[in-house]
């Protein structure tokens, strides 16, 4: 459970630090007029905060899988499976998708619609290509006899890659909505959507790097 505990320790550390700043030297029992113009929705757009929280949840999910992986790996029946070279190519594709959305984000800040659109297309296209690539990897493995249930290493490989692809699919839904906004030329919504998608894409890329690294090294 080390991986999970490290993640949680970092998260809890951040929470405690943030809370200390909020509570240090504050006397809750003293009444005072409110300061600042904050009314209703706070100054950070709620969707951004929500994405942050969601990423913490997803990190927790993958950290737990990594923990389970490393515990299960120790047992004697573990036979590592060969990682097909195609995975390297897929990794590169995912990276390009991430870059594309970064570009769209930059474009959104400067109101360059062309950059936004291209970036969105690259991000979505690469995600689709990555998924297709993963599917081919799966087919190849199945064809050469590495079935899901024949060894725990295989089982983990399919579950982890499958789960990662599912998260990417969820991201594609958000990306489609953002593209809708971009098409309609709604700047504020597009900006927000592009930013959220870009962060999510980067996040899934990092998750993939960690998973891939883990599977390569074992």
């Amino acid at each position: 459970m080390t991986a999970t505990l490290i993640f949680l320790a970092l998260l809890m550390g951040a929470v405690v630090w943030w809370l200390l700043r909020q509570t240090f030297n504050v006397k809750p029992w003293v009444a005072s007029a409110p300061s600042g113009a904050q009314q209703g929705v706070g100054f950070l757009a709620p969707p951004k905060v929500a994405l942050g929280v969601l990423l913490a949840v997803i990190t927790s999910l993958f950290a737990l899988f990594v923990s389970a992986y490393s515990i299960r790996m120790e047992l004697s029946d573990w036979r590592p499976l060969p990682e097909p070279g195609l995975l390297w190519f897929n990794t590169a594709i995912l990276f390009v998708g991430s870059l594309g959305l970064q570009w769209a984000w930059r474009g959104a800040a400067r109101e360059q619609w062309a950059a936004i659109r291209t970036g969105l297309v690259i991000g979505g296209g690469c995600a689709l290509a990555f998924m297709a690539g993963q599917l081919i990897v799966w087919q190849g493995l199945v064809a050469s006899g590495y079935l899901v249930a024949s060894n725990p290493a295989n089982s983990f490989f399919y579950v982890l890659t499958g789960l990662h692809v599912l998260h990417l699919l969820g991201g594609l839904v958000a990306l489609a909505r953002t593209s809708g906004h971009a098409k309609a030329g709604a700047l504020v919504k597009t900006r927000l959507g592009v930013e959220l998608c870009a962060v999510y894409w980067h996040f899934l890329f990092v998750v993939w790097l960690i998973l891939f690294g883990l599977m390569l090294s074992t």
Binding site: P34, Q38, V41, V53
Partner: peptide, 24 residues
Amino acid sequence: FTMGGLNYVVTVLQARTRGMTLMR
């Protein structure tokens, strides 16, 4: 639950009214 939970957390963090500091 995760859908609901995102709501509860973000509402507490971002939608408090004026003067409602965390310590209140």
